[in-house]
C-alpha cells in the first residue's frame, strides 16, 4: 500500500510538477515543441548525423529527435539543444545510466566523425518496447534560465 501511494505521489511528470508546491512552478511551463523545418526529409547537419547514428546503432522501434535550440538564447538555425526520445530492444537489460551512456556515446562518436563538437545540451528518454506506450509524448524541457557557454 505504501509503495503504491509513494509511486502515486512521486509519479509526477514535468508537466504537472508545479501542482505539488508553488516553489517549483517554473518546471511546469509547457513549451511548444520546437523542430526545424524539413523539406522532403532533409534535416540540418547535426540532427541528420544524430538520426543516422541512432538508427544504425540502436535499431529503434521508435525514435524522435527534437531540436529545442529555438527555445534558448542562441543564434537562429542553431543546433545546440536537443531532446531524444528513443525506444529500443537494446535497452532491455541496461540500467538507466547505461542506457543514457549508450545514447550519449552514439551521438558523441557520430558528431566527432562528422566534424562537430558535442552539443550544449542533450536530453534523453530511453525506453524499452515494454515500457513504451505508442501514444506517449516525450517530456517537455524546462525553460531556459540563461546558463551560457559550452
Amino acid at each position: 500500500m505504501l509503495n503504491f501511494t509513494l509511486r502515486r505521489l512521486t509519479g509526477v511528470s514535468i508537466r504537472n510538477l508545479n501542482q505539488l508546491t508553488p516553489t517549483i512552478s517554473s518546471l511546469g511551463q509547457i513549451l511548444p515543441r520546437a523542430t526545424m523545418s524539413q523539406e522532403a526529409g532533409q534535416y540540418p547537419p547535426i540532427e541528420s548525423a544524430m538520426r543516422k547514428a541512432l538508427n544504425t546503432e540502436l535499431k529503434p522501434v521508435y525514435l524522435e529527435v527534437i531540436n529545442e535550440s529555438p527555445q534558448h538564447n542562441v543564434p537562429k538555425r542553431s543546433e545546440s539543444h536537443f531532446r531524444v526520445f528513443v525506444v529500443s530492444e537494446k535497452f532491455n537489460d541496461l540500467t538507466l545510466i547505461k542506457r543514457h551512456r549508450l545514447v550519449n556515446d552514439t551521438v558523441k562518436n557520430a558528431l566527432k566523425e562528422a566534424g562537430f563538437e558535442f552539443m550544449h545540451a542533450l536530453s534523453i528518454e530511453a525506453k524499452t518496447p515494454k515500457q513504451w506506450e505508442p501514444e506517449q509524448e516525450p517530456e517537455k524541457s524546462p525553460p531556459c534560465l540563461g546558463g551560457h557557454g559550452k
Binding site: 514535468i14 531556459c144 534560465l145 546558463g147
Partner: peptide, 20 residues
C-alpha cells in the same frame, strides 16, 4: 548557477526535485 538562482532549466529541475 546556485540553488537560490539556477542559471539553467535542467539545473533548476534538479534543485526543485531535491527540495521536494
Amino acid at each position: 548557477g546556485n540553488p537560490q538562482a539556477p542559471r539553467c532549466g535542467f539545473s533548476n529541475a534538479v534543485v526543485q526535485i531535491m527540495r521536494m
